[in-house]
């Protein structure tokens, strides 16, 4: 049990996908202008991440390894991710068409969010158990959501701030992400090893 808790905290904070591993920066920059949108995007991505963690584990363990097809892992995972994102799109379109419209292109782009493929591949690399893989997915989703929502909240404040002209727009956003990444480095001391 404490192992799983460790995985959860390790992925959400210490090895945060966005700020420590620098995966999935596209939606972080793209969908962080409003907190509401960021929350929607976090939930959609969390859904994809968790489902991908489960499915990639199953496909890898019961299909690729027995058949000796590990060398096709990336293609298989991309196929899975694309399918899961399609499903997410349908679910979102049904449950919240407004959010579907607001997220726009960033929703299908979850497919190419490297955090998702990274999660599937790192899961294999770390040789997690089935539950471990799910927890890893959940932790990643929590970490991604945390950073995205925090960053969106910061950016909402930034709009009102008097930013020097050369720094306006993406520049100050990137500086902000960099500072957040520095802050997240502080979590590295949380767990030994």
């Amino acid at each position: 049990m404490s192992d799983y808790l460790l995985i959860l905290i390790a992925t959400a904070l210490v090895n945060n996908f966005v700020l420590v591993k620098f995966l999935g920066l596209c939606p972080i920059m793209g969908v962080s202008k409003k907190v509401d949108t960021a929350v929607g995007m976090s939930l959609a991505t969390a859904f994809v991440l968790t489902l991908t963690a489960i499915m990639s584990y199953l496909v890898n363990t019961y299909l690729l390894i027995p058949l000796g097809l590990e060398y096709l892992r990336i293609i298989a995972f991309i196929l899975l991710i694309a399918g899961v994102v399609q499903l997410t799109e349908m679910v979102l379109n049904k449950t919240n068409p407004l959010l579907y419209q607001v997220l726009g292109i960033y929703l299908p782009l979850i497919t190419s969010n490297c955090a998702v493929l990274g999660l599937a591949l790192l899961n294999v690399q770390a040789q997690h158990s089935f539950i471990g893989a799910i927890v890893y997915g959940l932790g990643t989703a929590a970490g991604f959501g945390l950073v995205l929502i925090l960053f969106a909240a910061l950016r909402e404040r930034l709009v009102a701030a008097d930013v020097p002209l050369p720094f306006r727009g993406s520049a100050i956003a990137l500086v902000t992400v960099g500072l957040m990444a520095l802050a997240f480095m502080g979590f590295a001391g949380l767990i030994k090893g």
């Binding site: 096709l72 196929l79 499903l87 349908m90 049904k94």
Partner: peptide
């Protein structure tokens, strides 16, 4: 064969889901 099967499975799952969750634009 494996990939064809995988794609077929995913495709039919999505097809089924699309029918059930007919997007209400």
């Amino acid at each position: 064969f494996t990939f064809a099967l995988l794609a077929l499975l995913l495709g039919s799952a999505l097809c089924f889901a699309a029918k059930r969750l007919k997007g209400d634009r």
